[in-house]
Simulated assay, not measured.
Amino acid sequence: MSAEISPDLRFTRTLAAFDEANSHDPRQELDENGVAVAYEVLYARRMSQMLQRFCPQASEALQLAAHSQHIERWTLPRELYSFDRKGYLQWRSDLKLRHASRAGEIMLAQGYDSAMCERVAALLKKEKLKSDEESQALEDVICLVFLQFYFSEFSKAHDEAKLIDILQKTWRKMSEAGHQAALSLPLTDEEKTLVAKALA
């Protein structure tokens, strides 16, 4: 009988399997060192790194959820849905279900039991967001990653009123700990000004 895989090795292999799945993303982005990386591989890396800084005591389930937050996201493009609020909300809802399902498939293949898969799925689906501390922590990390790495590019496509509205909505999703972390991010002067206007 073969030896049972160690929990640490199972965790490491699962993160690698998430990355392998995301490596097929046709989009690429330059990382902080100027190296081209599959878009969702880089996003997963940023999520894990931000989680480590924001919540260094994060459970294994929360770490797995953070790394698989956008698992194979490109396979369900926004263009498949109507370009109104109803279409956007349906797309976001379907993404949560797809991410939860795909993460669970990969985790089962790496030896996790159904209970752990269900816990990660619950986090990815943002169940009990305000009452589940881990679900809220994941939401905080998502918002922090957006603000640090994606808000600048996002801001180029929208006017100030729209950006302030987005910042206010992002702020409402976050906990007080998330707010404090957001205020310490290395934002540009322009971004800091927008945040200040959003919070005024």
Rank of each mutant, 00 (worst) to 15 (best):
E79N: 13
Q110P: 05
F11K: 00
A100P: 06
R85W: 10
H24M: 10
Y39C: 08
L138D: 09
L80M: 15
A109Y: 00
Y43S: 03
E40S: 07
S59Q: 07
V120M: 02
E191F: 03
C117D: 07
L185N: 12
V145Q: 00
A61V: 01
E105L: 10
L147M: 15
M116E: 12
D159L: 05
N33M: 06
D8W: 03
K192R: 15
A181Y: 11
P7K: 14
Y39L: 14
A38I: 09
A21L: 11
D8T: 09
Q168A: 12
L123P: 10
G104S: 05
P7R: 14
C117T: 15
P77W: 12
D132N: 15
Y88V: 04
S135V: 13
W91C: 11
A177D: 13
P7V: 14
E118S: 14
L147K: 06
W91V: 10
F83L: 14
D31G: 09
K96T: 12
Q63C: 12
M107Y: 02
V141T: 08
V195T: 06
V195H: 08
A198I: 03
V41R: 07
T193H: 15
H24P: 00
S135Q: 01
H24S: 12
E4F: 06
L95T: 05
V141G: 00
P186E: 12
S82M: 12
P77G: 10
T170R: 13
A3P: 00
I164A: 03
K96P: 00
K125I: 13
E139N: 06
Q49F: 05
